[in-house]
Amino acid sequence: MEQLLQQVINGISLGSIYALIALGYTMVYGIIKLINFAHCDVYMIGAYIGYFCMNNFHLGFVPSLLISMVVCTLLGIAIEKIAYKPLRNATRIAVLITAIGVSLFLEYGTMFFVKATSRSYPEMTGMMAQRFNFGNVVISMQQILILAITVVLMILLQLIVKKTRIGKAMRAVSMDRDAAELMGINVDTTITFTFALGSALAGAAGVLVGVYYNSINPLMGVLPGLKAFVAAVFGGIGIIPGAMIGGYFIGAVEVFVSGYGGSLYRDAVVFGILILILIVKPTGLLGKNTREKV
């Protein structure tokens, strides 16, 4: 029982990370039908920004998190404007290949500057290093922080998407781009904003992972990126609550599989799930089969 509880807690932490990354995939896919392969590298760069803030500039956790989110926002905007915007009317395969190119560029560009070796986030001290024991179940301050920050960010995201003018524009463009234009919505601005939002969340995820798992490297985004993508597909790609649910689901699966002795198969199970979804319900958990009315 205690072990189960411990797994749940670990699963929530990992799931939060996946959910934050998955949101970026799903929002961008929702609006321009692009699997933004470079998204996982924005997350990686977010982790590095947090690292430099804490390690080199000795900033606290919160300022580091915020700076990382801001830098990633700008990076996301730059990627969209430089790499994707000129291809707005190109074929989807051209954009996809570009996305892979951007991803490799970010990975090996980062490697050029920071070297390929892993770096360790600075030791957490004081309050940040606290651990709470309930019998044999341990909850670390970092885990509480991950969950709290993720929940706050998700609420903020929901508010932006549901209540603000630009959020409504985002939803309109993802449902019907032409109709959105006829409302007077600036589609380009809206797409850029979507990249900005997703990248900010990825930046936050990067710092949280650095704090939680300690070790970061230039290729750290690849595998979590793929899993977050599976999470997005699981929930129904393009659907924001789907990405949240998918993130926690994949996090839980992974933790349980490794917790009960299957750590070798952990990744295989996750990708097995992807295959299964694609066969059983390609539109994902919350996706609906598109229908049209006459």
């Binding site: 409504k168 939803r171 309109a172 449902m175 032409d178 109709a179 006829l182 409302m183 007077g184 919505i185």
Partner: peptide, 24 residues
């Protein structure tokens, strides 16, 4: 322009659709 095929925003409420009409 009320386009061919209606092109309303299906996953938004009626009110939200109308509000988007006044977007500018």
């Amino acid at each position: 322009h009320a386009p061919e095929g209606r092109r309303i925003f299906p996953d938004m409420t009626v009110l939200e659709n109308l509000e988007l009409g006044a977007y500018l």
